[in-house]
Design a protein around this nucleic acid. Sequence first.
DNA 1: TTTTAGCACTCTTGTTCTTTGACTGCTAAA
DNA 2: TTTAGCAGTCAAAGAACAAGAGTGCTAAAA
Lengths: 334, 334
Amino acid sequence: MLDDRKKKILQAIIDEYINTAEPVSSGVIAEKYNLDCSSATIRNEMVELEKSGYLDKPHTSSGRVPSAQGYRFYVNELIKEDNISLEEIKYIQSKLETKVNEIEELTKIATNTLSEVTHYTSVAVGPKANLQNIEEVKFVLLGSRMLMAVILTDTGIVKETIIKFDEDITEEQVNILNNLFNSKLKGKPLEAIDKPLEEYIFSEMHQSLNVIKPVMLQLERAIREEDHLYLEGANKSFELPEFKSLEVAKNFINLLDTKEVMLDLLNTGFAQDINVYIGDESENEKLKDFSIITFKHRYQDKDLGTIGIIGPKRMDYSKVISVMKYISKKLNGK
Amino acid sequence: MLDDRKKKILQAIIDEYINTAEPVSSGVIAEKYNLDCSSATIRNEMVELEKSGYLDKPHTSSGRVPSAQGYRFYVNELIKEDNISLEEIKYIQSKLETKVNEIEELTKIATNTLSEVTHYTSVAVGPKANLQNIEEVKFVLLGSRMLMAVILTDTGIVKETIIKFDEDITEEQVNILNNLFNSKLKGKPLEAIDKPLEEYIFSEMHQSLNVIKPVMLQLERAIREEDHLYLEGANKSFELPEFKSLEVAKNFINLLDTKEVMLDLLNTGFAQDINVYIGDESENEKLKDFSIITFKHRYQDKDLGTIGIIGPKRMDYSKVISVMKYISKKLNGK
DNA sequence: TTTTAGCACTCTTGTTCTTTGACTGCTAAA
DNA sequence: TTTAGCAGTCAAAGAACAAGAGTGCTAAAA
């Protein structure tokens, strides 16, 4: 385990590196941080911190840089979690007070606010389909050959989809659909819209097969539809020095454009309130230069999706985590 | 006006530059393009083409590069418009044959296909609100305190929005809303949902003021809602040599992230089938490194939005325009 | 035993100078 | 009007060098 002075030095180095983005020298630490010892002593400690894997050195005669293990220790043990100013609190409050009609809107506002306060790129994704129960299903006739299906879930999410037909649909058929689907699905998980249900409905009403089939097809598609990755402030990242490297910048674009990796991460199981993924800890090569911090958007313990920040490993973890904690609390208590 | 040989040389230079992204020398043109003259002759012609403003020179002893004027002439006069292979045609056909339930989906598929075939970043935006007429308005009760308003326009676009209330809404109130709005709005442009309408409705039914007010507010918001910029293949651009420059890459990200400039351009009035914007021709500093090519997505002469390509000025105009023409034709004739 | 001053050593960064090679523009001959 | 030939220009790449920042180690001080 690290003794007290080593912890302080490690913290100083990481704080300094987060600020300057330059390898940190023993001299700077001795000067700026009051650790009551000389640069030589700090140098000696640095050697040991490097040996234990908390620090890296870009080359022999350069200053030190935190390793993934260093960041991890910093995040788990050293971080200040109230790194948030009164102005920031006020700003967040005012943003989150906006009256919204849909929870998805609220997620967007929170994501936007998070990005604005932290100056990093933020992302969000809605709740997973298999965690939501159906509250109500409504079919609405649009014109004579279009049907809109609206599903309201217990999380307050509204999913809607449109089905087009080659022949006219009668109001009576719409009523049958409404009764049938509601009686079968109310209270069931979204995933209950599946093949077995389709077969059941087939056996029930042979009448309008050519209506039921496209309806089922489209409903299933709408539910399993690839989650939408909501993105805010992608350009903010490009002001950071690590994005001077074309390699890094390209990886970043790719990560956000492909969506897959990000969605995976955002949908991953949650141990804590706030989850920190530090680049190189993942097996995924694409993530090695970045850190991602996420939290669940919850309201009255219902899962309303996940919100996160993506940025360089040299991220202001303390600020991001503080702001997230605050936003998370506000969202939940609203 | 340019004589025949000058045209041929200009064309050769631009073709070559589009391929190699390197300033083009007289030697290469004399060698690769059969113009029946020596590099010295071509050099003489190049001097004149430069004097007339069609070519630029990065520095005294380098090859030539097309100027904005050069590209413009190339696009207007020299381009081959059937630069599309059988495979590409087949691929586009198969993609566009996908059965869709919403036109917006079709726009997405077309945008996606355009990006895949040309290897550039493509963008799309839906039809402007002021060009669409209301076909039908439906209000649907979700739970007891949520109302979904669905507007079907004559272009087949469906806009839906949700309104939340602090008190229960009755089925009767929903009926009143449906009758009122449909009788007032059927056939009218989307923009008819405005203050005067609100006042008219107020005077008509004092009854449920606390229902009408939020409904109108939310409907207006939904209609004037900032257009959504649909984006496809943003990462493709980053493989191109011009994006090696961090400056250019950053401008590109900014352009797409801010959306505003792009939306302006996509919504601009249309003279031709296909519109080509060459970077430096615009007064907008942000566009100076890029070219944008757009076309209207039309079906039976109804405006269904705009689809475009954004890439470096050194773009394969011929390929992009050829592919666009084909996709445009297919979309219209479907 | 721990801390620190001092110094040699290492490695990056920036500068200058040189070489190489790709083009051009011009001149004079074809 | 075209072309061969050649001097002149400039960017790009590399070599050589100086400056500076930082380390690790040693030996003295606390």
